[in-house]
Design a protein around this nucleic acid. Structure first.
Lengths: 306, 306
DNA sequence: ATAATGTCTTTTATCGTAAAAAAACATTTG
DNA sequence: CAAATGTTTTTTTACGATAAAAGACATTAT
């Protein structure tokens, strides 16, 4: 079972959706571009679609015969990449009770538990190590440093440093820059979400990420941009498994974002700094609340540094 | 040729040095602790030493018979770990002429050229990717982003942000903290080096790293501390393969460090910031000079931000 | 003659496996 | 009986092999 064909299956599912919208599929290279896969995979998809009576396929002609049914799709769990599977499984352990700092991580055991080869687990751990939650002992095991209060504070500090700098760079961008349009669009989305927050609050997470990534992109610094991956990862799993108070948290955050956006549009550096700091302070508290040691006030000093 | 025994060979060589100083080797666990290897490896070493007539070994008794000769040592190149070999080889290509941004990196080709398995190369590239010089295309090749002027500037910006913050945290540490002793010791070493700079300037590189790591440690932030790995990596290879003007560069840097140390000891935040900025500005210029597009003045704005 | 399709080659992703090294357990010694 | 040695088991490190996926080359159709 050398390698799963999840790329093919996932692309196949996404391609099924395209059938609902057209009566003729485009050329192989074009399809490949839209689906983000190679022509080899595209041809595999087309072959199966023809076989299952979804299309007729003869050279350039790819005519849609029928709309896909539920049973035409591959099951969702077969479309995940191996690294996603490992990541989810690992994060579940990490954020579960009993994941104490100092614990050892055993590659072989992890691999056996998840049912994958050790190589994939190793590669995942190496990639994951840049998040600062685990550490390698040379020629030996990994050590879990834990999702602790200290981690949350260190993360929040860097985030604040980076985002304040990015926000300052943002307002310095010329008026005809693309970012202002992007910001307008995000503002509209925020307002729409705010109007129906009671039902749509779970959508905030994704909007939040897009908003902050836009701001960070203004820094034009790869280390700042890349650092958002750490934040994103932590928040992603955090939101997924810790739903307590989620609605009110998101409601507050949307309001803070709108104030932040208004400040950015005013291009007043002082206002921006204030709005940014305000939002990041409450984000920091949210994160702290979710740590095992959490629910303590923020030491006043921390916010004043920089 | 599943796995090389470089850990054993390296530890063996280091253990030979111990023979020069004592007539009796300590217990197996103690030896393991000093050499940083497991008892399994220690016993392997002892067995070979006994076999080669360097010691007699009977249970607790490990008597030294003779001082090691040149030919007792394993050749140096056999003591390098695979990842070191790959790293060196990769960095040579990276910093050589013709390593243009946008180039593709081929795992298989790299592995064949270096003469190692693909897994090791993959793992190296994943680890290396956090330095921001390469990027992965999903299910496909890596892309070289290049050691460009942009890279150097982005690196220097973050370094400045982090070091200014660390230096500020440093002077806020209580007077009885260990760091002041460490700083005193570093100062002494700097003075000694300065006195004989003409001969000893190549030793600066290592001192430089220890000094900056001490300052960064005061931040108590793992992301700041870890970021120094990026700087360290770049400077390490940079110094190794770009010796032009090295002596004068190091001479300047030593002087800047001494001023910086004096500022830290004064505990005057303004003086510290000034000395720190001054040093980092010249370090930035050194780095810029070494990029292919280098040798241009620093844009004035850059230093004023933050 | 450009862009698509058809075919073949190369590279990546992943596993099983084996040696090196670490770690755990059992036994002896001071 | 605590710490060292002797022995066995487990884990890490690394390779070669193989299916999936990408990419390159050859051919055909508009």
């Amino acid at each position: 079972m050398s390698k799963s064909n999840n790329v093919y299956k996932d692309a196949y599912n996404r391609c099924l959706r395209l059938l609902e919208e057209t009566s003729n599929l485009p050329s192989e290279p074009e399809l490949g571009a839209t689906l983000g896969v190679s022509r080899t995979t595209v041809r595999g998809i087309l072959a199966r679609m023809a076989e299952n009576g979804l299309i007729t396929w003869d050279k350039r002609d790819k005519t849609v015969l029928r709309v896909p049914k539920e049973e035409d799709f591959f099951p969702e769990e077969e479309t995940d990449s191996l690294s996603q599977i490992i990541e989810r499984s690992f994060m579940r352990r990490l954020l579960a009770e009993g994941a104490e700092a100092g614990m050892q991580i055993n590659e072989l055991e992890l691999a056996r538990d998840i049912g994958v080869g050790t190589t994939s687990v190793r590669e995942f751990l190496i990639r994951f190590s840049r998040f600062g939650l685990i550490e390698k002992r040379r020629n030996s095991h990994w050590v879990l440093k834990g999702f602790t209060r200290a981690f949350a504070l260190e993360l929040a500090d860097i985030r604040e440093m980076f985002e304040l700098r990015s926000a300052a760079a943002f307002v310095a961008l010329p008026g005809d820059s693309q970012v202002w349009d992007d910001l307008d669009r995000l503002e509209t989305e925020h307002r729409a979400l705010a109007r129906d927050i009671a039902n749509r609050y779970p959508e905030f997470s994704e909007l939040d990420e897009r908003f902050h990534r836009l701001i960070h992109s203004a820094s034009h610094n790869r280390f700042i941009v890349d650092f958002y991956d750490v934040i994103s990862m932590i928040f992603h799993y955090h939101y997924q498994w810790n739903k307590a108070g989620q609605r009110s948290r998101n409601e507050t955050a949307v309001a803070e974002h709108l104030a932040y956006i208004a400040a950015l549009k005013s291009r007043d550096a002082a206002k921006v700094e204030d709005a940014c700091r305000r939002h990041l302070t409450s984000a920091r508290q949210t994160l702290l609340d979710s740590t095992p040691e959490g629910r303590q006030a923020i030491p006043a000093k921390r916010n004043k540094t920089l």
